[in-house]
Design a protein around this nucleic acid. Structure first.
Length: 103
DNA sequence: TATTTGGCGGTTG
DNA sequence: TCAACCGCCAAAT
């Protein structure tokens, strides 16, 4: 399993996220049968083109924004653009906005 | 309720 | 191969 393949799989999951929703590293990891949610963050960080993929829609399990290649402020900005409000680095009504790939 | 700690799988050099 | 590094998480303080 190559890095590029996992990245592609990851990107595929990212674009699946409905507009106005978010997901967590853990859920994404589980969705792609990856036993490690930590590795997901690494892959996202090495995302070749963050502009093309909504990697800003991936946050911590409790709705806290963990990090972003372009900086957290930019991440917040993009989330807001999707109608997601942030309060002190945390998503408001996170449990209502999370997308858990339970299809 | 807010911090700290330990551990986990996967990627990188 | 091996060791170190993570955009984390859950349990223990």
């Amino acid at each position: 399993m190559s890095h590029a393949q996992k990245m592609k799989e990851l990107q595929g999951l990212l674009v699946k996220i409905p507009h106005g929703k978010v997901t967590s590293y853990k859920l994404v990891a589980h969705a792609m049968n990856m036993k490690s949610y930590r590795a997901v963050g690494q892959l996202l960080g090495h995302n070749p083109e963050p502009d093309l993929y909504p990697c800003y829609k991936v946050v911590g399990s409790d709705g806290t924004l963990r990090g972003y290649a372009l900086g957290l402020p930019e991440k917040i900005k993009r989330l807001k653009a999707d109608g997601i409000l942030i309060k002190d680095g945390k998503i408001l009504d996170f449990e209502d906005k999370v997308y858990s790939y339970k299809n």
